[in-house]
Design a protein around this nucleic acid. Structure first.
Ligand SMILES: [Zn+2]
Ligand SMILES: [Zn+2]
Ligand SMILES: [Zn+2]
Ligand SMILES: [Zn+2]
Lengths: 157, 157
DNA sequence: TGATGTTATGTTATAATATAACATTTGTTT
DNA sequence: AAACAAATGTTATATTATAACATAACATCA
């Protein structure tokens, strides 16, 4: 169940991007924040706060919730990661976008999450908002279903 | 901060709809389920499970979480209410739609939630999914921002 | 430099949201 | 009535997230 692309390239690009941005915006990518970002970056699947917590903990030194949640808040605030509201989980952002509208395709079989930036959809969201005299600030689009891989290699008989 | 329409009409329509559907589908709208639905129906704002719990409890008889969550599950399953993932809260459905794509406009100022059924958006969601070979099962669209009322009567100087 | 303010982290406790597991009751079917 | 299925009651606990306050690290500049 291998992805069609080399995920290491995504990862190194994302790492490069976060480092650049932090330098540029003069915000601090501290060791804790890096560690948390690395954990989120390791997978195309969404990861949960308490899993990050687990991964960062050692028998001797247990990381505590606020440590992770604060780093998550930082990363969210600057758009380096996204929260998936319907899973209470997080993914790294592999695109470079501002506060734009993005769409998440979430496979409920394998957990893979794919981020899309579809301008047509962004536009339609704006149109709907305008029609309703609504000032759109933060669109959330989470599409649950089954990915191509899971559809074809399906374990369901 | 009055709504432009008579919300009582929405409510009685929704009540009529749920009763009809339960008869038609031969599913049971038990007293507990009705009570929970009524609580959710009382407001255009989203309501949280533990608020429903509170509202249904009396000093003598405290309702317990599973009671409410089970009723919520029933109501969700049959489409009488929707969950707002980004708020961990629930609203009654005032439309009559199947498993369609619907959009929620959520005002972060006043908490009002407005459900929209926009066919253009539904269509674009299908197109995106097809393009990505993704089998769309459950789209979640939650648009956060500021409603017309709050924009015009804004308390922000 | 070192006094001062700001940002980040450590620590403890607890709030808020949700479910597991099993017992009992109620409703339905035969 | 017996048997089964669906709904509710009950206890306990899992999961997700934040409040509040103490300490440490870093930045600014007198
Ligand atoms: Zn992104
Ligand atoms: Zn999949
Ligand atoms: Zn609806
Ligand atoms: Zn509003």
């Amino acid at each position: 169940m291998k992805n069609t692309h080399d995920h290491h390239i995504c990862q190194s690009k994302a790492l490069q991007h976060i480092n650049e941005q932090c330098r540029k915006k003069n915000i601090r990518l501290t060791p804790i924040r890096q560690q948390v970002f690395d954990e989120i970056l390791q997978s195309h699947k969404a990861i949960k706060a308490y899993d990050i917590l687990q991964n960062m903990s050692t028998p001797g030194e247990m990381v505590k919730p606020p440590t992770v949640y604060r780093a998550i808040d930082f990363l969210l605030e600057h758009g380096f990661i996204h929260k998936i509201e319907s899973l209470n989980a997080f993914i790294a952002c592999y695109h470079e976008h501002n506060k734009d509208c993005f769409q998440l395709l979430i496979c409920d079989e394998c957990g893979t999450v794919s981020e899309q930036i579809n301008n047509k959809i962004s536009h339609e969201m704006k149109l709907l908002s305008e029609k309703e005299n609504f000032t759109l600030q933060h669109p959330i689009i989470e599409l649950h279903g089954t990915c191509f891989q899971c559809n074809t290699t399906g374990t369901k008989s």
